[in-house]
Write a protein that binds this DNA or RNA. Structure first.
Lengths: 340, 340
DNA sequence: CGGTTTTTGGCAAACGTTTGCTATAAGCTG
DNA sequence: CAGCTTATAGCAAACGTTTGCCAAAAACCG
């Protein structure tokens, strides 16, 4: 920096001001300084700046260690959209994986308390906490995405899962379906609660009994979505009175489920209608093309980043704690009226 | 840190030594120091350390901005495996997206030259370079993954694309196929060159003419893999003499291609055999299940990190510049002998 | 041209570590 | 207990910025 100052013929403090907060220096000298910096190939040292200012410009995203269940399909898009928004605000994105072991928790806490990161976006249902240090009271702005953690006081960006599932279930009922097969992810998980709740609400609204829906899957939370679908197909095969409509909580499990039951001679949507969750692009090219509830992940990513920026900007944590972004049903050929 | 020292009854320098390089301090006092640190909820400031030591503990992964083509399916696995390996070595993973605009290039260069990162893993074919600053001469250890950039002097971790495609093409020839349809990604891309080269090699080895293979796709590099497959299906429909075997350079395009040509009444593998590249889990559940050449991405990720660690450890850049990890063909029902 | 505002220069402290140095203390050996 | 090795204390410099302060210079105004 001293070199740049010398070459530009200005003081070192002026260089700093020109590069960091562009307001406080004359436009003409700023141009001169930039030219000098470019000529010398100078780039300010981020760590020195961070140390002095007391803030980093890194945001960490906390991914569940086993992102297999469902989420895997949408992760790249989430990452892309979040990173894009962050960069526009001058921030960088760091990845942190939260496994079920203490090591990864400790690692995340080190990041948080060591001043490495300025905020976090969390896609996991559990806040790391060990040895009295907890992410919750790290003082870091945190926003949760996909999962509603407003109970824990976290700004949350979610879709209207319950409502979406309720609507699609209602539509299936309207078409004449009366026996349902619900393909669950990890049991008790926010998504499971909401989505299954949506199914039940629709049944109730139609004056139907909860017994009409058979739950399958959801025993393990580290399972690959495809595996869940395969197991569920076995489960389905055992049923004497076959359900005519399947509601799956992720595209992955729907895809493998469909593949397996087609092999047993059943046809979609002739014998069974299927709808799932996520909106993976691949659904369009399945046979038959799968109906799916599309999660607007790009939009959610942007919203999460905006909330984070708000939280960083002001010391007060804002009141609104839950942002709902509407998902949309993509209707394809996998849904029809039941046979008779 | 001073507080910790006071509580533990030792000097501040001893605390530093105990926490940073554990060798130089007595085990007993180290335990005392750790206890004090835990009690006080103390975590060393990473930026201060980084500044003093002159090195960061962050590795950046440079992803192509449009990771749509093909790669999208494997990115989460790549990220997971790389991050896991990095953390074991005490490093963190930062994401950088390399788009075709100057902004993103500049951004990456700022990261590199600003001392923010200690090394890079690059999954893009182009090294950012602007204003005389180039990633190549940033002094940073860099390893390329998926793409062979050993020409540019970069350690590269790749699969044996050419060989794998050659083998599977030879197998198709053996089955009796004589007309081929090659579904290309971005033209001139390393993968395209290698894979197409593999096709040609197999033809030549069998004494067949290059004219037997029809190329499709590969005009744009920002296309979603699925779109390429859709377009290629239109392309395919126009051909008077239909090829009997399709070799696709990513699973995505194979999936959408298959979906579309099945709709025109053709059957797989009856009328057309299909094989593709990537090894996405979803292939198993397509109808028919797709044969695919599986890229061992976890293994590649580990290898890339190991190479990076080697490069960080020593000042000399090691001689070997290309690491090949063998891919494996997963044979499924989408391949059969041609009809007559 | 005197007075006022804006911009810059120069200085120095601060951010929280690490690390080389010397000196002291502690522990061990015979 | 002398002589040796090992561990720690205490000090201070350094890493590369930012930023508050005040003075100096420049620009602007009427």
């Amino acid at each position: 920096m001293a070199d740049v100052a010398r070459l530009a013929g200005v003081a070192i403090s002026t260089v700093s001001r020109a590069l960091a907060n562009p307001g406080r220096v004359n436009e003409k000298t700023r141009a001169k300084i930039n030219a000098a910096a470019r000529q010398l190939g100078y780039t300010p040292n981020a760590m020195a700046r961070g140390l002095r200012v007391g803030k980093s410009n890194i945001i960490m995203i906390i991914l569940p260690g086993s992102l297999y269940y469902g989420a895997s399909q949408v992760i790249p898009q989430v990452l892309q959209s979040i990173n894009k928004s962050l960069i526009q605000g001058g921030y960088n994105l760091m990845i942190a994986n939260l496994d079920r072991d203490e090591i990864s928790e400790r690692h995340i806490l080190d990041l948080a308390f060591g001043g490495s990161v300025r905020g976090a976006i969390i896609l996991s249902s559990k806040l790391p906490e060990v040895d009295g240090r907890s992410l919750a009271n790290s003082g870091l702005p945190i926003v949760s995405m996909l999962l509603d953690m407003s109970d824990a006081g976290l700004q949350s960006v979610v879709t209207n899962d319950r409502e979406a599932v309720r609507d699609v279930t209602a539509e299936l009922i309207r078409l004449g379906h009366r026996r349902f097969f619900y393909l669950a992810g990890p049991e008790g998980n926010y998504h499971d609660v909401e989505r299954y709740g949506g199914v039940l609400e629709a049944l109730e609204a139609a004056g139907l009994s909860e017994d009409l829906v058979h739950r399958s899957g959801g025993h393990l939370d580290y399972q690959h979505g495809f595996d869940i679908g395969v197991q569920a197909a076995d489960d389905f095969a055992e049923l004497t009175e076959k359900p005519t409509a399947v509601i799956a909580t992720s595209d992955d499990m729907a895809i493998s489920f469909v593949s397996r039951i087609q092999r047993t001679g059943l046809s979609i949507p002739g014998d069974v209608s299927v709808v799932s969750f996520d909106g993976s692009p691949v659904c369009e090219f399945c046979s038959p093309p799968l109906s799916t509830i599309k999660q607007p992940v790009e939009e959610m990513g942007r919203a999460a980043v905006d909330l984070l920026f708000d939280a960083i900007g002001q010391r007060q944590n804002t009141a609104t704690v839950r942002t709902v972004i509407r998902s949309s049903l993509i209707l394809r050929e996998s849904i029809a009226a039941p046979k008779n």
